[in-house]
Amino acid sequence: MNIFRILGDVSHLLAMIILLVKIWRSKSCAGISGKSQILFALVFTTRYLDLFTIFISVYNTVMKVIFLVCAYITVYMIYMKFHKTFDREHDSFRLEFLLVPVTGLSFLENHSFTPLEILWTFSIYLESVAILPQLFMISKTGEAETITTHYLFFLGLYRALYLANWIWRYHTENFYDQIAVVSGVVQTIFYCDFFYLYVTKVLKGKKLSLP
């Protein structure tokens, strides 16, 4: 466990909490892509099946459970509790465009051809593209609430910190997981454009709106 990993996990948790607080306080999930949140719930579900097969550490188990709970509460808020505020019209990304290639790739390129490994690989590939419906929604409406951009910032920061974590682990432990690293790099690239807008607009007190 290194500082990048811890900070990455904290950013990830913070992002999910920011999103939940935003929805809870405003009693609205306007501007949030329900499809991205369903994908994240699917990511955690397929990745954390090892909760039943292997014990890594108390930290690992507790965080996994918290992530799962947060993801499902978020989906519940969007599709049940505050579904009237959900902007279905603009959440029009076609999920099959992500799910079909990700499923195919997880069968082709994995560490071992076992159900749990394939599901783990599926979750890694899926996580790398799960934010796309959200980014698509923002590009469609042309704007995002400031709190939504904070959510995206911490989610992107988590990925960037994990890259630093892998570089650290490569040098100190000789640990290198190619599937996770390649997907992590791809995922981080998706946030670059957003990071630029966040720094040039949101941090200067302006609302994120696209020309």
Partner: peptide, 10 residues
């Protein structure tokens, strides 16, 4: 079934 690879990250 026990995973062959130890995935210790979140």
């Amino acid at each position: 079934i026990v995973a062959k690879t130890l995935h210790d990250e979140l």
